[in-house]
Amino acid sequence: MFTPEEVERYARHIVLRDVGGPGQQKLKAARVLVVGAGGLGSPILQYLAAAGIGTLGIVDDDAVSLSNLQRQVIHATADVGRPKVDSAAEAIARLNPTVTVERHSLRLAPDNAAGLVAAYDVVVDGVDNYPTRFLLADTCERLAKPLVTAGVQEFYGWLTVLKPWEIGPDRLRNPGLRSLMNEPAEGRMRTCAQVGILGVVPGVLGTLAAAEVLKLVIGIGEPLVRRMLTVDLLDMSFDLVDTEADPAAGATP
C-alpha cells in the first residue's frame, strides 16, 4: 500500500495508462543494481529514484573529482573527494527518501560479481571500461538477470538490453554481449579522459537506459532486446540495429 504522500508523489505515474497503481507497486517492490555512479549512472540513479524504485544498489569504488562534474550530474562541487556511492546515496535521499539505497563501495570483480548481481532483479551497466562490462554481462547471463547496458564517448552512444538466456519465437537464443562483439584487448579502448565526451551524451543514454529499466520492471512496451540503439548527437541521428545471436557460437564461458 502507498502512503498519502506516495500517492501524491507518484500521481502522474498512477494516472498513466499501463503503469497505474499496479505498475507503481512493481517499481516499489523492485531491486535494481546500478554498476557505476558516473556519467551514465547519474541520470540512471536520479530517474530510477524519482520513479520510486524501492531499492537501488550502487556499485562504485571511485571518489568524485572536479572533472567529473561536467557530466556526472548526481554529484555536486561540495562532493569532490568524497566516495561516489556516498555522494549519490545522499542525492537520492534528498530526491526521494522513500528509496532504500544499498551502497557497495567496491570495484566489481570476479570474486564479488555473482554475490552482488544475485541480490537484484534488474542490473544496469554504467561502467567505463570493457573488462568490467564483460564481467557484468557474463555474470548476469549466468544468473539470468536482465542487463541494460550502454556505452558513451565523444558525441556518441549505444544502448541495448540483454536477456541471452531467453529463447525467442524463432527458437533462437537472444544475443548476449559476446554475441555483439569480441572482448577488446586491455588498453585498446580510448577513454573519455583521452578523447573527451560532450556532457549531455551520458545524460541522453542514461535517461534512455532508465526508461528501459522502468519498462522491464513494470512489464510494458518492447525493451531493446535483439535491438541496439545507436545515438549520434552531432547529426542528431538515432538508429536501431537488429541483433541476433549466432547459433553456431559457443555459450558464455
Binding site: 558516473g38 551497466d125 567505463d128 558513451v152 579502448m189 573519455c192 540495429v241
Partner: peptide, 10 residues
C-alpha cells in the same frame, strides 16, 4: 555491413 567504433565509456 554495419561498422561501429569502440565506444565504451560510462
Amino acid at each position: 555491413l554495419s561498422v561501429f567504433p569502440l565506444v565504451g565509456g560510462g
